[in-house]
């Protein structure tokens, strides 16, 4: 199915700087490929798409393949029931520019190796981390949470209190929202005292859709990314949006 995005279409703001730490796209499918077919079909697939010739080098029992770039933060993972890629911060520019060509490579896997016409689930995950340093992370902890996220999203986290002998702690809050039929957005907001001086605030957003025809995967991935953008804007405070948007850092 082609996803209908219920949110009003809006152009994504172009941020001057980003705290995006990871982008991940996963395609899950059935039926599971059997081991022999996986090995036989992966060889021509890797040759065609990655220009890798593994003839005679594949483990006789291999049912899993990982392809890592040596000079970029990009990684592909192929299994009998899923295919995915992960992009690190230094290799990511925009979703359309960086991720969509890689989605195309996964689609080719679905057609040539999984040999299915539709997939069970398509998911796009983006993980943001804001590291904030302060003289006393424990006493500033809840203020940092309020500083980073919209208060309406974290009002319950703000009630956390340390005892007299504070220790590092990680708070996390999850939410799952049904966006449309077969489309959902999961969010994990987290706040972690990493050390006495540092707190990591995190936001992981996972937009997923079920029952996607192979021809809709590319366009639906873009729609899921739009849904993640909206979830991001609705979760993060104006302080952070301003920090990411303004021309000069100071």
């Amino acid at each position: 199915m082609a996803i209908k995005n219920p949110y009003p279409l809006e152009e994504h703001r172009t941020f001057k700087r980003t705290f995006l730490q990871q982008t991940e796209v996963t395609l899950r499918f059935t039926p599971v490929i059997n081991d022999v077919d996986f090995r036989n079909r992966m060889l021509p697939y890797l040759k065609t798409v990655f220009n890798l010739d593994l003839t005679g080098k594949v483990d006789a029992e291999a049912n899993h393949a990982e392809i890592n770039s040596d000079n970029e933060q990009k990684k592909f993972v192929f299994d009998l029931n899923q295919a995915k890629f992960i992009i690190g911060p230094s290799s990511y520019n925009t979703f359309k520019e960086t991720a969509i060509p890689m989605v195309g490579m996964l689609v080719r896997f679905i057609a040539d190796v999984a040999e299915v016409e539709a997939i069970d689930e398509l998911s796009v995950v983006k993980i943001n981390i804001w590291p904030i340093k302060s003289e006393d992370a424990f006493s500033s902890f809840t203020n940092m949470i309020r500083y980073t996220f919209k208060e309406s999203c974290v009002s319950d986290m703000l009630s956390y209190k340390f005892d007299d002998n504070p220790k590092p702690v990680r708070l996390s809050k999850t939410s799952d929202t049904t966006i449309a039929e077969s489309v959902g957005l999961d969010a994990v907001l987290s706040a972690e005292v990493v050390s006495k001086e540092k707190v990591n605030l995190g936001l992981a957003l996972n937009a997923s859709a079920r029952n996607i025809g192979i021809n809709d995967i590319l366009s639906d991935a873009i729609t899921l990314n739009d849904i993640i953008y909206r979830g991001f804007i609705e979760s993060v405070s104006e302080n952070i949006i301003d920090f990411m948007s303004r021309e000069k850092l100071s």
Binding site: F50, A65, I67, D70, P89
Partner: peptide, 24 residues
């Protein structure tokens, strides 16, 4: 500029924490 690992893995260990922890 690529390296490939093909191996035998039959179980993915994911906790919620692991799932959303960056790999890079």
């Amino acid at each position: 500029s690529l390296s490939v690992v093909m191996s035998m893995v039959s179980f993915d260990c994911y906790s919620l924490d692991d799932k959303y922890r960056p790999v890079f």
